[in-house]
């Protein structure tokens, strides 16, 4: 699924990495627990989270998960943006809850990691 479609389906706005909107991703994982995200062996997946701090960006970087969907319109700080730009990580911000975002994207065909 194209990141552009993910953004549209979740009525999101892109706050970083706009050039990656035409990238495609097949899998997603939703969690606020970064240690859990770090157990995933797969790379190149969409991280859906409500955790808006520098560690969610670091975790995306370490997990080779270059796409992050931030739910509930959480604020993206300047330091998050700086790191995301440095690592070319796409951040989409949605007003929807994590449950709703995950439900919409699952129904649209995005696959779960587990």
């Amino acid at each position: 699924m194209k990141l552009r479609d993910i953004c549209s389906l979740t009525e999101g706005i892109v706050v970083s990495g706009e050039s990656r909107l035409d990238d495609s991703v097949d899998f997603a994982f939703a969690s606020d627990l970064m240690s859990d995200v770090l157990t995933i062996k797969k790379d190149h997946f969409l991280l859906i989270t409500g955790l808006a701090n520098i560690q969610s960006i670091r975790t995306a970087e370490m997990s080779d998960a270059p796409y992050l969907l931030l739910c509930r319109n959480k604020e993206v700080t300047d330091e998050m943006l700086e790191l995301a730009r440095e690592d070319n990580i796409l951040i989409i911000k949605s007003k929807f809850s994590m449950f709703r975002c995950a439900g919409i994207l699952f129904n649209a065909g995005l696959k779960p990691v587990y």
Binding site: D32, L33, M34, S35, D36, T39, L51, N53, Q55, S56
Partner: peptide, 10 residues
């Protein structure tokens, strides 16, 4: 825990 860690997985 607010940082997304501290769940005994490290």
């Amino acid at each position: 825990r607010e940082m997304g860690f501290g769940a005994g997985m490290g």
